[in-house]
């Protein structure tokens, strides 16, 4: 990771977001990047290089998870930001907001166990054709925590075919050895899907929390690889902005 370039990350805060500070800490203090909280009423996101939609329970999960947040004033700007090819990372509730706003296909429904699942899982990297896993290899496994009640990914069979055909499935839940099995699927997601991108590969939604495994002191560091991939991509693509 280049030390010369610093990028500006915006973390959107909805009423009920609760992983915003974890993301801020990881980005600002672990990776040394600039970072700002963005209240959901804001509409100007042009100064940012990457937008993060953090985990939590926006609007108390009323109606459907992420549904009310997806109508926040900031989301129109985030949509434009994404359509311009900039990186947008939605983690957990952020993933739920991204599917509700339509930047990603499908929906996230109640875990098949009906339980809130909070534990470490393994995910296998399925695609590196995007901004977020550029520094990884297909088949790599990451140990990463999940914490959600509604992470059961669902989409139509046509959408699923399209996701697979375009290499948009980025992570699948797997065993420690990287095997896909029903036992390693913590929430009932179709084909063990844990994270997907849009077609262009600049919008990632994932249920696991990379910001919760970015430091040795919290007993996991493999989430770093995702943030480092974003920074590598910014180094290659944002130099013209001349930030130092």
């Amino acid at each position: 990771m280049s030390k010369s370039n610093k990028y500006n990350f915006g973390i959107v805060v909805f009423p009920g977001s609760n992983c915003d500070h974890d993301c801020y800490h990881a980005i600002k203090h672990v990776f040394g990047q600039d970072c700002e909280f963005l209240w959901h009423h804001e509409t100007d996101v042009d100064r940012f290089d990457c937008i993060v939609l953090p985990g939590g329970f926006s609007y108390g999960d009323y109606l459907r998870t992420g549904s009310i947040a997806s109508l926040s004033p900031i989301m129109k700007s985030v949509e434009k930001f994404a359509q311009a090819g900039n990186p947008v990372l939605g983690i957990c509730n952020g993933f739920q907001v991204l599917v509700e706003v339509g930047l990603l296909p499908g929906a996230l429904i109640k875990n098949s166990s009906l339980k809130f699942v909070c534990k470490w899982v393994s995910v296998r990297v399925e695609s590196t054709n995007n901004i977020f896993t550029e520094n990884l290899k297909v088949g790599d496994t990451l140990d990463i925590p999940i914490a959600h009640g509604e992470g059961n990914y669902f989409c139509t069979s046509e959408e699923l075919k399209e996701l697979n055909d375009n290499s948009q499935v980025v992570f699948r839940y797997c065993t420690e050895n990287g095997e896909l099995s029903p036992e390693s699927n913590p929430n009932g997601s179709i084909e063990n899907i844990a994270g997907i991108t849009n077609k262009a590969g600049n919008v990632l939604g994932m249920m696991p929390h990379p910001e919760r495994c970015a430091e040795e002191i919290i007993l996991g560091t493999q989430g770093r690889l995702i943030f480092e991939s974003i920074i590598s991509w910014l180094n290659l693509n944002k130099k013209e902005k001349g930030r130092a």
Partner: peptide
């Protein structure tokens, strides 16, 4: 637009 999610 809001009350239902036509996907599911």
């Amino acid at each position: 637009k809001l009350l239902a999610n036509p996907v599911i």
